[in-house]
Design a protein around this nucleic acid. Sequence first.
DNA 1: ACCCAGGCATTGG
DNA 2: CCAATGCATGGG
Length: 271
Amino acid sequence: MALLRLPEPFDFQLSTERFRAFGPDLANLWVDGALHRVVGTRELRIEPAPGGAEVEPLDDETRPVALTLLGAPFDLDGFYGWARADPVLARLTRELAGFRPPLAPDPFETLVTSITAQQVSLFAAFAIRNRLIECFGRQVGQAYAFPTAERLRDATYDDLTALGFSGRKAEYVLGLAQEPIDLDELASLPDEEVKERLVSLRGIGEWTAEWFLARHLARPRAWPVGDIALAKAVRSFYPEETDLVAARARFEPFQNLSAHYLLTGARVAVG
DNA sequence: ACCCAGGCATTGG
DNA sequence: CCAATGCATGGG
């Protein structure tokens, strides 16, 4: 076991809450107070420790994944300083101090996960996603590697609908798995261009593209307009804000962190 | 048996 | 350009 230091502030429990909130997640598995995830051919285990996390094994392959999962790239200091001017966020950042929104390490996984979450509750989405993982992922230790595009090229429409995908979503996932696009190179592009390219793919709309910017690329200004849970959270904290498009300007330039703090604040009933 | 839940493509005006 | 429609599952 080795200590992985996280930038302060950092709260392990808050930052991993999402991996427990909607039932088990076979690709980011919570076992006895630790987070398990497959990296390459090994199982990574991350548990809380003063100053950061204990990580096993810790090396050049696993370190960046652990840092990503624990939201290390976010600029919390800048966000907290900015949030002091807004009474709601001032309170949320105080109550959720050290919450680093977890980032999704893999772009294909991020998109497929979002497709499963389109339109349905996250409890339903996680259930369907877990069946996909169990069926097409690879188990290493206790956790499963999320199915790769290559692996999903062997899946059929009937395989996916049997797991609970709608016919449309089955088509989206199969199409994406066969798409000859290098999702890694999106990381080098500006927000608008990432969105343009993603939205051109069937099954990926504005909402999915924004969450990709937010949860995979950690772009500060990502703001998932169209997200029904975020709309509800904004309405509850800011009764005067009527729609998410208009509310975007209020959170400039920290829309991503604001969205995460509002959603998590609503979920853990802060206040 | 409902209804709603962290959307999207398709169709028709 | 905007409105209406179907979709499959889990939880209340």
